[in-house]
């Protein structure tokens, strides 16, 4: 049974290589596995569908390049839906790089729907201060928001002064990778001002959101890249997230195989003792 002993001590670079292959091959040769739609994603989609034209949606990009792969596809798919429904988008971020990442999606999607900056959408940039800032922001936007992300005075845009307090917001969509993020939007903003919150989170954060889904504090959830793939499917704009789902499936299968082999080794070691 030297085989198991050798397997136990396998060079980790072989594992790395197999993982790399499991990601690359399905991207080059797609399997086209169907993407199922889960309840929490459908709930976000349905709520956006119900919003009347001209409603104001705050899109808070609370992430950075480290989570870009998971949350940028969700940002793009959500913005696609908002513009298609003629909703007005008020972008911001609790993380410094978030609004800039969101802006990349805004700049590529808004023109395709003929949307005008400052009229149909605006980006007010990074807002420091986390939870305390959210309490203050909900009470009085005008006090805190004085310039857009590029430093242009907010009063120079028609949409700039459309939001005076939390009462003027119809929905908040937070694309969240940690703290500050969705938790703070729920307990510091929604709990105080009653605004509806939807979220797209990194997969790591998704399990923590279920208590808030069940209490109704969150209206819906896009969990990780899979959540983004579901939203891309719902808005019929299949892009990066859907393209990645085959690789995601194959790597997960591979990891299950690793886990099984690891446990066979454990059984063998137990028996030998």
């Amino acid at each position: 049974m030297k085989f198991f002993d050798r397997l136990e001590k396998i060079d980790r670079r072989i594992i790395f290589f197999l993982v790399g292959l499991a990601v690359i091959i399905p991207l080059i040769i797609p399997l086209g596995l169907p993407v199922d739609i889960t309840g929490p994603v459908q709930d976000v989609f349905d709520r956006v569908e119900e919003l009347p034209e001209g409603s104001i949606v705050v899109v808070s990009c609370d992430y950075d390049p480290g989570s870009e792969a998971e949350l940028s596809p969700a940002t793009a798919a959500f913005l696609e839906h908002c513009f298609r429904k003629n909703l007005r988008v008020y972008m911001m971020g609790l993380w410094p790089a978030g609004p800039e990442l969101g802006n990349l999606a805004l700049e590529s999607i808004a023109p395709t729907y003929g949307k005008v900056y400052g009229v149909d959408y605006i980006n007010i940039g990074y807002r420091p201060g986390g939870p305390v800032m959210l309490v203050s922001l909900g009470r009085d936007f005008t006090d805190l928001v004085r310039a857009d992300y590029a430093g242009v005075p907010i009063d120079s845009f028609p949409l700039g002064r459309a939001v005076k307090s939390a009462r003027d917001i119809d929905l908040v969509m937070t694309l969240s990778a940690g703290d500050p993020g969705v938790l703070h939007w729920i307990i510091y903003f929604s709990a105080r001002y009653g605004t509806e919150i939807a979220t797209a989170t990194t997969a790591i954060m998704a399990p923590q959101q279920y208590p808030y889904l069940s209490s109704g504090q969150l209206i819906g959830l896009l969990g990780g890249l899979k959540g983004a793939a579901e939203y891309e499917t719902l808005v019929d704009k299949k892009a990066r997230a859907v393209a990645g789902m085959d690789s995601q499936s194959i790597v997960h299968l591979l990891l299950v195989v690793f886990i099984v082999i690891g446990n066979i080794i454990l059984l063998y070691q137990k028996r030998r003792k």
Binding site: V23, L27, I28, E70, P207, L225, H252
Partner: peptide, 29 residues
């Protein structure tokens, strides 16, 4: 469940970078 989701998150980040290399750089896909 959290572990399952953590695996999912990490793999997604890797897919994002490999997608960039294959799509934007090498333009193979």
């Amino acid at each position: 469940a959290s572990f399952g989701y953590t695996v999912m998150a990490r793999i997604s980040l890797l897919i994002g970078r490999v997608y960039f290399l294959l799509h934007n750089w090498l333009q193979l896909i």
